[in-house]
Amino acid sequence: MDELKGDRQVSEELKEVNLQLPAIPEAIAALKPGNIVFLSGFVYTAREGVYDRILNDGGELPAGLTELSNVNFHCSPAASPQEDGSYAVGGVTATASFRFSKYMAQWLDLTQTKIVIGKGGMSKLDYETVFAPRGAIYLTTVGYGTGALLGRGVKGVKDVHWIDELGIAQAMWLFEVDKFGPFIVDSDLDGNSLFAQQGDLVNQNVEALYDGLKKPTLHRYGETDDRKDELM
């Protein structure tokens, strides 16, 4: 990706964008579902361990975090402490974001985060009611397992918080990144969602896949939430 200077049209349908962090509102507003994004600047990780600590247990945000970075990565890096006190970062991969839905409104308000990166997106409802009104968008990692490519984009660990209390996976890591990516834009400021759009298209064919297969002998809970239903 070294030759990559500005934005470019990768193919008829795919557009690549380089974003300087902290991301400015105009740059965020220009992103559309399906755009490919590379990031340069600072990105921090936070997931349930950090959210609980700050939002529920009265912990404080590290000083200067909000000025330095407005990008929250749902990630646990494969990192290990070196003898000189620094950290070697191997691979960097997102974790599934939907689990963190309940924290997002408060977190975005507190940290002024404008970009959330993770695996698999959040619900369209979250985008419409939590993200878009706060000027925030969601980027998904590509294929999810692309930890080695993402690891290349991490130039260094600027800081790590609460590693003793929370462990490597849950700690807050502050990464300096350069052409960190690729990511795909899932949600935009209108609350659109690429996952929802694609899911709707896939769903159109789903019923037909079962045509001709006989009904199951025994049904199962999970297909219904009504515990009074019979399975037979």
Partner: peptide, 29 residues
């Protein structure tokens, strides 16, 4: 499909990066 094709291509790039850099292909090991 263009998007799906892009994802697969990125995955293949990722395997190459892992082998070249000797780093885990996915951080969730």
């Amino acid at each position: 499909n263009t998007l799906s094709g892009y994802v697969i291509k990125t995955m293949i790039d990722n395997y190459e990066a892992a082998t070249e850099d000797r780093r885990p292909m996915c951080a969730d090991t």
